[in-house]
Simulated scan of single mutants.
Amino acid sequence: MPLSSLATEDDSLTISWLLAVPAQTVWAGFRDPALLSQWLGRPLVCDAKTGGMIVVDHGGGCLSRSVVTEADEPRRLAMTWDFPDEPDSQIAFALHPAESGTRMELVHNGLGSLVDSYGPGWVTHLTYLEAAVGGTPLPWSQFWPLHTSFEMLYGAADATAAAAPSR
């Protein structure tokens, strides 16, 4: 898992991830319904162009609805994030060439008090994205056990940071 950084500030989450594939291949993970279904959920609408919509069923009828606000293939995808019972927020994926493939930066703004809960979720989804674009999709039956592991690690890291003496 090439997670290179994860940070929260106020109501924003930023994750940097290294993927061993070109940016165009990562971009396919955003616009190809077959790949999107391997990492985010079942796409009901998948129109990853500026002004388009992406609607994903995350299971049990829980739908995320996004309006694409910027699509600059294969460099940047920005969209709204409307998830049930949560404040509306915004997501941006920026793709940068890297020596071994692509460095992706995900910024999720407007999360409010949910900012810390989104870290493990995005790390899990990005693990699935990495596998999907790498040609070895992970079974959905492993999503929640993996998510639980990331929650435990994320909580342990927060506890360690809180216990560290300030300088």
Results as ranks from 00 to 15, higher is better:
residue 45 V to G: 03
residue 66 S to W: 03
residue 142 Q to D: 13
residue 165 P to E: 14
residue 2 P to L: 09
residue 2 P to R: 08
residue 47 D to H: 12
residue 50 T to F: 03
residue 28 A to Y: 08
residue 27 W to A: 01
residue 114 L to N: 13
residue 133 V to F: 01
residue 122 W to L: 02
residue 11 D to C: 15
residue 106 L to A: 02
residue 79 M to Q: 09
residue 100 S to Q: 08
residue 38 Q to K: 00
residue 100 S to R: 10
residue 130 E to T: 01
residue 58 H to L: 12
residue 114 L to A: 14
residue 48 A to P: 08
residue 143 F to V: 00
residue 5 S to E: 12
residue 27 W to G: 01
residue 127 T to L: 06
residue 118 Y to K: 11
residue 146 L to F: 14
residue 136 T to G: 10
residue 109 N to P: 09
residue 61 G to P: 04
residue 35 L to H: 09
residue 61 G to W: 06
residue 135 G to E: 05
residue 116 D to W: 10
residue 149 S to G: 10
residue 91 I to H: 02
residue 24 Q to R: 14
residue 122 W to Y: 00
residue 66 S to I: 09
residue 67 V to T: 15
residue 102 T to Q: 08
residue 165 P to Q: 13
residue 158 D to F: 10
residue 153 L to E: 10
residue 48 A to E: 01
residue 141 S to W: 07
residue 97 P to F: 05
residue 69 T to I: 10
residue 138 L to I: 01
residue 101 G to P: 06
residue 12 S to H: 12
residue 146 L to M: 14
residue 132 A to N: 02
residue 16 S to F: 02
residue 16 S to V: 09
residue 128 Y to S: 00
residue 9 E to M: 08
residue 71 A to G: 05
residue 97 P to R: 04
residue 134 G to Y: 00
residue 31 R to I: 06
residue 49 K to S: 13
residue 116 D to A: 15
residue 67 V to S: 12
residue 116 D to L: 15
residue 49 K to D: 09
residue 61 G to S: 04
residue 97 P to E: 04
residue 158 D to N: 12
residue 11 D to L: 15
residue 101 G to M: 06
residue 52 G to F: 07
residue 18 L to H: 12
residue 142 Q to I: 09
residue 67 V to L: 14
residue 84 P to Q: 11
residue 75 R to S: 15
residue 26 V to R: 00
residue 31 R to Q: 11
residue 8 T to N: 06
residue 55 V to F: 07
residue 94 A to H: 12
residue 152 M to N: 13
residue 163 A to F: 03
residue 120 P to A: 13
residue 10 D to T: 14
residue 111 L to F: 13
residue 111 L to C: 15
residue 139 P to I: 03
residue 101 G to F: 09
residue 70 E to Y: 09
residue 21 V to I: 08
residue 156 A to V: 14
residue 41 G to M: 12
residue 16 S to C: 11
residue 58 H to A: 05
residue 36 L to W: 03
residue 120 P to S: 10
residue 52 G to R: 11
residue 18 L to F: 07
residue 5 S to H: 12
residue 120 P to D: 06
residue 130 E to V: 02
residue 142 Q to L: 13
residue 152 M to V: 14
residue 75 R to V: 15
residue 134 G to I: 00
residue 71 A to C: 09
residue 123 V to E: 13
residue 46 C to H: 02
residue 29 G to A: 01
residue 140 W to C: 03
residue 110 G to H: 04
residue 157 A to T: 13
residue 90 Q to C: 13
residue 76 R to D: 07
residue 47 D to E: 15
residue 164 A to G: 07
residue 138 L to K: 02
residue 87 P to H: 05
residue 85 D to H: 12
residue 71 A to H: 07
residue 4 S to E: 10
residue 151 E to P: 02
residue 115 V to W: 04
residue 40 L to W: 04
residue 123 V to I: 14
residue 89 S to H: 07
residue 119 G to T: 14
residue 127 T to P: 03
residue 78 A to M: 07
residue 161 A to W: 01
residue 86 E to V: 12
residue 130 E to D: 08
residue 41 G to K: 10
residue 11 D to S: 15
residue 65 R to W: 03
residue 117 S to P: 09
residue 87 P to N: 03
residue 148 T to V: 02
residue 111 L to V: 13
residue 48 A to Q: 05
residue 96 H to Y: 13
residue 137 P to S: 07
residue 125 H to V: 08
residue 115 V to I: 08
residue 165 P to M: 11
residue 57 D to Q: 06
residue 15 I to A: 05
residue 20 A to M: 01
residue 118 Y to G: 09
residue 39 W to L: 07
residue 139 P to V: 07
residue 52 G to M: 06
residue 110 G to Q: 04
residue 146 L to C: 09
residue 43 P to Q: 05
residue 83 F to Y: 15
